[in-house]
Amino acid sequence: MSLSTDDVRHVARLARLALGDDEIVALQAQLSDILAYAEKVGEVATGDVPPTGHAYPLADVLRDDEPRPSLPPDAAVATAPQAEDGRFRVPRIVDEA
């Protein structure tokens, strides 16, 4: 599978990456190579294997509904770039129309 430069721009926008035109061209080739490599997996005959998100032979690891201690509030925001009144401070959420 080969990606277009528009595909690269779209993925970059979703990841909030500002890329220059030369970077987009370079990444177009690199990402296409990576996808082609991953597509090799598709060559294996797996018609009788159900799809799975995991390689582990595990299911249903569940927790009882018992509360456990939370972090002290100061610790929760300690690593935030900005905090105010115990809350995480973030840039405005919706761009002006």
């Binding site: 105010e84 009144d85 809350r87 401070r89 973030v90 840039p91 405005r92 959420i93 919706v94």
Partner: peptide
């Protein structure tokens, strides 16, 4: 989210505080 700014709403907020 608590939207901080003169509008008090999500539109026109200066920044937001998240709990």
């Amino acid at each position: 989210s608590l939207h901080v700014g003169t509008s008090g709403r999500i539109h026109g907020a200066d920044y937001s505080l998240v709990d």
